[in-house]
Nucleic acid binder design. Structure first.
Lengths: 166, 166
DNA sequence: GATCAATAGTAAGTATACCCACTATCTGCG
DNA sequence: CGCAGATAGTGGGTATACTTACTATTGATC
């Protein structure tokens, strides 16, 4: 009888075409574009801060846990984000009288104004993030990315949770 | 004369299908899968630490700046990563005698052994990151992601730099 | 209505991931 | 040779992004 030779695959690993590595690099590019463009406006918001403000505009009075769910962030992380937004005077946080554990967060008038100013800016540089793709490819990439984000949502330590309290 | 009404687009912004937000969520999922699987092996390496070790296996004796370039990381970040790898005894760092500014980094035997052990593990969970995509979609996603990473590489604050010294 | 489990937020700790500025060193050029 | 500019690594600072553990509440159940 002939011995079976089991080859379990080469021991070398080429990282550069693997999902995790590519995704991390895309994230770096995306963050970099965001920060660059944001800095140019004079309002140096991070993408998290912007996302939080955008969510608070859509749903004023969210508590922190719900806010975290809506933009898919960790509860602890969002605390610091809100701290800094509050420090900049863009957000105010008041204890919810119906549930004294929770804090209701709303944009200040200044926060609303700055958000209003930034939204078109953010819209404008979207395509720059996916540089190198044509229209059709961009649409396909976004479709696939949304599919992955949806299918893998439960794997994330900070899953997207819309409508926590129905 | 009739006044012109300029509508510059809606002020509401739906973040959930935008590139930056999706990419960040994919990164969360990818990280989460990596950490989970890694923890199960008993060696709690982060993805950066693994990437660094993998690069050092392929090119022993890289200096930190080159290592940073090869895996697309910031020079300052990689310093800390190497510190921690050194602390775990997986890597050793010696001053390059030909250029006393640089430190030559190599895997220790234990580092080589652990890397060898982890490579098949990392290979095995790759498809889990892109859960929800079939074979063809996965290939297409990776193709598009590679294209974006390549086209946007110069936008990253920590671009991929292969072959720094030709 | 008292107790118990679940939840909201925070605190403290680790690890990226960037910034800027600084020292030490090297290289090129006159 | 000497000096100017570039480069390698680090230090200090900020902001995510997670972990576990803790307190203060709340709601659910007996």
């Amino acid at each position: 009888m002939v011995a079976k030779i089991m080859i379990r695959g080469p021991m070398k690993l080429e990282i550069h075409n693997m999902a995790g590595h590519l995704i991390r690099r895309l994230n770096q590019i995306s963050m970099s574009v965001f920060n660059e463009r944001m800095r140019a406006t004079g309002h140096a918001l991070t993408s998290v801060q912007f996302a939080a403000m955008n969510a608070l505009h859509a749903k004023p009075g969210l508590d922190q846990a719900s806010l975290a769910g809506v933009i898919a962030y960790d509860r602890a992380t969002i605390g610091g984000v809100v701290d800094r937004l509050e420090g900049k005077g863009l957000v105010k946080r008041i204890v919810n009288e119906r549930d004294r554990r929770a804090r209701t967060i709303t944009l200040t008038p200044e926060g609303e104004q700055i958000l209003h100013e930034l939204i078109p800016v953010v819209k404008r540089f979207q395509d720059e993030i996916l540089l190198g793709l044509n229209e059709a490819e961009r649409a396909e990439f976004l479709r696939l990315a949304a599919k992955v984000a949806d299918a893998g949502n439960h794997l994330s330590r900070a899953p997207l949770i819309l409508d926590r309290k129905p």
